[in-house]
C-alpha cells in the first residue's frame, strides 16, 4: 500500500493569553491516520466546535505547521515544502472546499474569474479556448456548465449551486485529495443531499479521496467509509463508519450519537418528553 496522506502523531499547540496569564492550548493531540492512494475513500472527521477538526484540516492543507509530528503527502513532508514550484504542485493535488460559499466568493467578482484563474495557474493554460474547455469540463462533473455560470455573481445563485461551483473549482487542477471543511452546514437541508451525493460520485468516477469534516452525524453515516471522532483535540474513536457511528463504544461518541434526533415524530417527540421528565 502506498500512502496518499499520512499523519504521524501530529500535535498543534497555540499560546493563548497575555504576558502574565499565558497558557498553552492543545488544539490537536497525537492524531495519526493514513489514506490509501490506490483506494479512494471518504474519510470523515466528526466533532463539535472546538474539537480541533478545522485545525487538522488547515495542517493538511499546509496552512498551519504542526508543533510536532509529521504530515506526509505522497511520501513528502508538507512542512518541508520550500519553493514556489513545489507548493504549486502540492496545491494542485490537495484542494480545499470551504464552509460558507457566500463568504468564499467575493460578491463583487464574477464566479468564472475563480474558475479561470485556477485553470490558468495550475494547468498553465494560456489561450482562452483551452481555459474555457478545462473549466467547462470541471463544471460538467458537478452537473453545471460554463454557459450557466459565465458572468454570474454569487448573489444570483443558490447556496447549493455555489457550493457545486466551489467543488468544480477544486476539481480543475485534477486533485487527488479534497479537504471539505463543513461543506454543507450553511446549505439548506434539502440541498445537502445533492452536495453529499456529489462527493460519492467524485470518489467513484474520478477516484478523488475526500476528507469530509462535519458535525452532522447523519450525513457522515450516509457517505463515509471511515470516521474519526475528535473531542478537545483527541481522537476518541476511529474505524469504519457503520461501527463507529452505528455502535459507538467511547463515552463521548455515545453522547454525540444519542444527541442526534431521528427524523421521526414518534421517536423524536418521545426523546424530548423524556428530557422534560428528567428536568
Amino acid at each position: 500500500m502506498t500512502a496518499l496522506l499520512e499523519l504521524q502523531d501530529v500535535n498543534k499547540d497555540y499560546r493563548v493569553g497575555g504576558f502574565l496569564d499565558r497558557s498553552t492550548l492543545h488544539a490537536v493531540k497525537h492524531v495519526s491516520f493514513t489514506l490509501d492512494a490506490e483506494k479512494p475513500e471518504i474519510f470523515t472527521v466528526v466533532g463539535e466546535s472546538g474539537s480541533g477538526k478545522t485545525t487538522t484540516a488547515r495542517m493538511i492543507l499546509g496552512n498551519e505547521v504542526p508543533t510536532s509530528g509529521t504530515l506526509r503527502f505522497m511520501g513528502k513532508d508538507i512542512a518541508q515544502i520550500r519553493t514556489r514550484q513545489e507548493r504549486l504542485e502540492f496545491m494542485a493535488r490537495v484542494q480545499p472546499i470551504f464552509q460558507n460559499p457566500f463568504e468564499a466568493f467575493n460578491p463583487l467578482t464574477t464566479l468564472d474569474y475563480y474558475l479561470f484563474s485556477t485553470a490558468k495557474r495550475f494547468l498553465g493554460l494560456k489561450d482562452k479556448v483551452a481555459v474555457d474547455a478545462a473549466t467547462d469540463k470541471a463544471l460538467q462533473h458537478v452537473g453545471l456548465s460554463l454557459a450557466e455560470v459565465r458572468g454570474r455573481y454569487s448573489h444570483e445563485l443558490s447556496g447549493g449551486q455555489l457550493q457545486r461551483i466551489a467543488v468544480a473549482r477544486a476539481l480543475i487542477p485534477g486533485p487527488k485529495l479534497i479537504v471539505a471543511d463543513e461543506p454543507v452546514s450553511m446549505v439548506d437541508a434539502s440541498l445537502r443531499m445533492s452536495i453529499v451525493n456529489l462527493f460519492r460520485e467524485l470518489r467513484d468516477t474520478l477516484g478523488v479521496s475526500i476528507i469530509y469534516i462535519t458535525h452532522d452525524l447523519s450525513t457522515a453515516y450516509y457517505i463515509s467509509d471511515r470516521v474519526i471522532i475528535m473531542h478537545k483535540g483527541d481522537v476518541v474513536e476511529a474505524g469504519r463508519a457503520e461501527e463507529v457511528l452505528g455502535n459507538p463504544s467511547h463515552e463521548y461518541s455515545r453522547a454525540l450519537r444519542s444527541a442526534v434526533l431521528p427524523p421521526d415524530p414518534v421517536v423524536a417527540s418521545a426523546i424530548i418528553r423524556e428530557k422534560l421528565r428528567a428536568v
Binding site: A189, M193, S218, Y221, Y222, L245, R257, P263
Partner: peptide, 8 residues
C-alpha cells in the same frame, strides 16, 4: 431525503 443513521 432526510439521512438517517443506520441507513445508507
Amino acid at each position: 431525503s432526510l439521512p438517517r443513521i443506520g441507513d445508507t
